[in-house]
Design a protein around this nucleic acid. Structure first.
Length: 573
DNA sequence: GCCGTTTTCGGCCCGACTGTTTTCAGTCG
């Protein structure tokens, strides 16, 4: 069983317990457990089968460890079955409607016996909802609107899309007279893979001007709520955005607070309490006297910590790392010197060899690999041995016209369903750089798909495994492979692992990339560019690497060409 | 349900906004 599956069950337990009116701190223990399980790099099933206790994980006590073990070994849990019998799925569905939480959902279920969203709509239209205690006409109206939006609501967008929108609004706010500072916060600033809503912070003498600007913005459809310091709007794209406006002296405290994550903030504030301090979005206080808050540096310094990069603020290990002075110096876009995964018109790319090399050079890359598809990918006009060799000859020809950039003759070679490679070793041996990838047979059982990856890693000509789990963020799950075995093999064989920078891939993800780092596997961040603009996405690969806690030294393509070349030769012997 | 350099019991981060309320509960982040 995947850790993610176990995490989902614990989320479900938490949702159902909450509707049942359980102690909120008990519910939080279940939610914390879900996060801990989802983010744990080692397969929990293996821990259990090895006879170890899950109590070794933070926030997991005897009770939750037993429940998790039962779920892992039997696939069910009496408590969960009981909760499922008591609370229909339709009641859980209500939680997705903005404004409906566990308390109101429980009232609708118990007072009106509503067990589906269709029944909820009918009850809202008939006036039954508005007549309930604690409800009213506006609530009923909000429910009807929420049902309308149900399809779009809860849908997350890729970071790249969310960041573009939030950057545009921030830039606009900075032109408003009276606005001092503005910045994106929330999950956009933490560079999460997907974004549920946008958070923007501004400082101003008077919040009204900033809020008026946002209300009138071309991207905004509707103002959902507005107070003195906080405004919530729905964008035409369906995304919602929170704008928070505070005094300039509170900028650091507000940015810290508004960046989150919630779990990180809980740890920060708990630490403040232990030191007799109180932190809120306006500042750090001792006995109601403001002692810090102008910058984020000040806020962290007040609780005895160095500034923590937003990408690490997930309430996991960052506090411990900060406390012991072991925070990584995270990789930056400027550290990248090479790009090792790209396509041309020879297969499904949109630019010629010459155009791609020129574009790579304009980006300041020192080295660059052209890795068109192998023949199995017929849709993309994949290359067989003859066409590939002709393609490489053309690359040799064209690259003579460029200086100051090394161009590698590469191939993105499919790992076939039967665990063989799509091209013979004889051909692969002639390549400068071989990216081995899974494109087909992604639903194979764990055993077979693991065997495929292991056999590719064992091939002496394979340089790197590209987008190793083949997942598409939010659309296609990762392959079922035992990634722990795969990473161990890669470490043994000196095969690199890719972080594919495309916003829909970002694979390896942060958890697996962190495991790879621990094992000493060199990572490669590549764009998979299919056009001259395809290089733009490198930034997102770097963000993912930062979330994994990677430093420049952990990423092979930050090295100068002469060092990178040595890495290649080491593999080839 | 978890946890402990004041605690094995009694805490558990903190505040804004809305709607339905005569002082606050629920939701959200």
């Amino acid at each position: 069983m995947q850790n993610a599956t176990l995490a989902q069950w614990f989320e479900e337990l938490a949702d159902r317990l909450e509707i049942q009116g359980a102690n909120p701190f008990r519910v939080r223990a279940y939610r914390n457990a879900a996060r801990t399980f989802a983010d744990h790099p080692e397969p929990l099933a293996e821990i259990v089968s090895a006879g170890r206790s899950l109590q070794e994980l933070p926030g997991i006590g005897q009770d939750l460890a037993d429940k998790a073990a039962t779920l892992i070994t039997t696939g069910s849990l009496p408590q969960l079955e009981e909760l499922r019998a008591q609370i229909p799925q339709g009641v859980l569905d209500m939680l997705r409607i903005p404004g409906l939480g566990p308390k109101k959902a429980a009232v609708l279920f118990h007072e009106l016996a509503i067990t589906s969203l269709d029944q909820l709509r009918a009850a809202a239209e008939s006036g039954a909802v508005a007549g309930l205690k604690g409800f009213g006409k506006k609530t009923a109206q909000a429910i009807l609107e929420g049902l309308q939006l149900a399809a779009a609501a809860g849908e997350r967008v890729y970071l790249a899309e969310a960041k573009a929108v939030s950057d545009e609004i921030v830039a606009g706010l900075l032109t408003v007279p009276g606005v001092y500072q503005a910045a994106a916060a929330g999950s956009v600033r933490r560079r999460n893979e997907t974004i549920g809503d946008l958070d923007v912070l501004a400082t101003a003498a008077d919040s009204a001007a900033a809020m008026d600007f946002l209300a009138a913005h071309a991207l905004v459809e509707k103002v959902l709520a507005r107070g003195d310091t906080k405004q919530r709007v729905r964008l035409k794209s369906g995304l919602e955005l929170d704008l928070r406006v505070v005094a300039d002296a509170s900028y650091g405290a507000a940015l810290q607070y508004f960046t989150g994550s919630k779990e990180h903030n809980i740890l920060v504030r708990k630490r403040a309490l232990e030191r007799g301090l109180k932190i809120n979005e306006y500042g750090v206080y001792r006995d109601d006297i403001l002692v810090a808050g102008h910058t984020e540096d000040d806020v962290y310094a007040a609780i005895g910590l160095p500034w923590i990069p937003p990408e690490l603020r997930e309430g996991q290990r960052e506090m411990e790392l900060a406390e012991t002075g072991r925070l990584p110096r995270l990789i930056e876009l400027a550290d990248i010197r090479g790009d090792l995964h790209s396509h041309t018109t020879a297969t499904d790319g949109q630019a010629t060899i010459r155009e791609m090399i020129a574009a790579a050079q304009r980006r300041g890359l020192e080295y660059f690999a052209i890795t068109d598809h192998s023949k199995r990918v017929t849709m993309a006009n994949g290359l067989d041995a003859d066409r590939l060799r002709a393609h490489w000859r053309e690359i040799e020809q064209v690259r003579r016209d460029f200086s100051g950039i090394e161009v590698l003759r590469g191939i993105e070679c499919d790992i076939l369903e039967d665990a063989t490679l799509d091209l013979d070793d004889e051909v692969l041996a002639e390549a400068d750089w071989v990216v081995a990838v899974l494109h087909y047979g992604l639903k194979q059982p764990a055993e077979q798909v693991t065997r495929r990856l292991l056999s590719a890693i064992a091939n002496p000509y394979v340089s790197v495994i590209g987008h190793p789990t083949a997942r598409i963020v939010g659309k296609r799950p990762p392959v079922a492979a035992n990634m722990e075995d795969v990473l161990k093999a890669a470490a043994d064989q000196g095969v690199m692992m890719e972080i594919n920078a495309h916003p829909s891939r970002l694979d390896l993800d942060d958890v697996l990339a962190a495991s790879a780092k621990t094992l000493g596997i060199p990572l490669v961040i590549s764009t998979d560019a299919h056009s001259v603009n395809g290089f733009d996405v490198m930034q997102y690969g770097v963000y993912q690497a930062r979330r994994a806690g990677l430093e420049a030294a952990d990423v092979a393509n930050t090295r100068p060409w002469h060092e990178f070349r040595q890495l290649l030769h080491r593999r080839r012997g």
